[in-house]
Simulated assay, not measured.
Amino acid sequence: MRRQIVLDTETTGLNARNGDRIIEIGAVELLNRKLTGNNFHMYINPERDSEEGALAVHGLTTEFLSDKPKFAEIAEAFCTYVKDAEIIIHNAPFDVGFLNAELARMNLPSFSDQCPAITDTLVLAKELHPGKRNSLDALCGRYEISNSHRKLHGALLDAELLADVFLAMSRGQNSFEIDMADDDAPKVQEFVASDQPVGEITVLAAVDDELNEHETLLNGLDKQIRDKCIWHTTA
């Protein structure tokens, strides 16, 4: 069973190397591309104030966070939750850098070592939509995912939105079957057998150039859905 964790963090500022800390972690679980409801969400006391710009983004005040657990108190539960999963993050270097810094303070293996399978949806979006805005808000608009309730950034809310965006971006055709209502079903023309002889049927085989073009197209589909498309899996 393929387990994926869509993850987001909020922080006191933009630079973990300058001592900024994680103040919120939100994550949702996907099993076989379906949300399970097994979420991870924690507010964290960073033991410092948020920068003014960051506070305007997430709205989590020092007073609100003062009675929340410190990262060291939630680290074990968090590492257990993400273990052996593929991690999906938008702009992964930012969040991974902060997680690595927090774990380094505890002399624990880095997040990168504990979770080597990391998919960056920002990289994926840039491949699919070169030259376009690929922020989470922009992608929600592009894939018609409602984010009207997103007034401030929140790690769990953003992880939920990102999960919907990721599923939309990586959606492939899983079946040749087409579900249609009876009224929309195509009409099948009936043919009556005839005694007249049927002419010789001519079969034109694809030439090498056409076969190569077809394989290039299928490989492109594989890359877009980050898996094998149905024409490869049924070949």
Rank of each mutant, 00 (worst) to 15 (best):
P116F: 02
E144Q: 15
R2E: 12
G220T: 09
D183P: 06
A163C: 12
C140R: 09
R105E: 14
D84E: 13
C140K: 07
C79Y: 03
T234C: 07
L103N: 02
K126E: 10
F166P: 00
A159H: 08
V82T: 15
N212T: 15
P46A: 04
F94M: 02
L152D: 10
E63I: 14
M1S: 12
E73L: 09
A77V: 04
K228S: 12
H41V: 05
E144Y: 11
D158A: 04
G220A: 15
A138T: 11
I118G: 03
S135V: 01
F64I: 04
E215W: 11
C140T: 08
F94D: 02
K83E: 13
H129P: 07
L103Q: 03
F40N: 04
E73H: 11
Y81S: 00
T121G: 06
I145C: 00
I5H: 09
K126S: 07
F111V: 05
L157T: 09
N91Q: 01
I5P: 01
G26F: 02
G19A: 05
P130T: 12
K187P: 01
C79G: 03
E160G: 01
N212Y: 10
D8W: 02
F94R: 01
I230R: 12
D67C: 06
T234H: 09
L30S: 01
M42P: 01
L152H: 15
Q224F: 06
G172I: 01
S148K: 14
E52I: 09
R226W: 07
P116G: 09
D67Y: 09
G141N: 13
P197S: 08
I74G: 02
S194I: 08
L152I: 11
L122M: 13
G199N: 11
A185L: 12
N39W: 02
L161C: 03
A72L: 11
A27V: 04
G172Q: 00
E86S: 07
Q224A: 15
L217W: 13
V207N: 14
V96Y: 02
K126F: 10
L162V: 03
N32P: 05
S135T: 14
Q114H: 06
D183M: 14
L156V: 06
T202Q: 14
N212R: 15
I25F: 04
A193W: 12
H153V: 05
I87H: 00
A85Q: 05
T12H: 02
F71H: 06
I118S: 02
P116V: 03
I178N: 05
R33T: 09
H153S: 06
N18D: 13
E127R: 15
L136I: 10
I5E: 06
E63A: 11
R105F: 12
D20S: 10
E177S: 14
D95C: 00
A56S: 13
I89M: 00
P46T: 08
D67A: 14
D49E: 13
L103M: 05
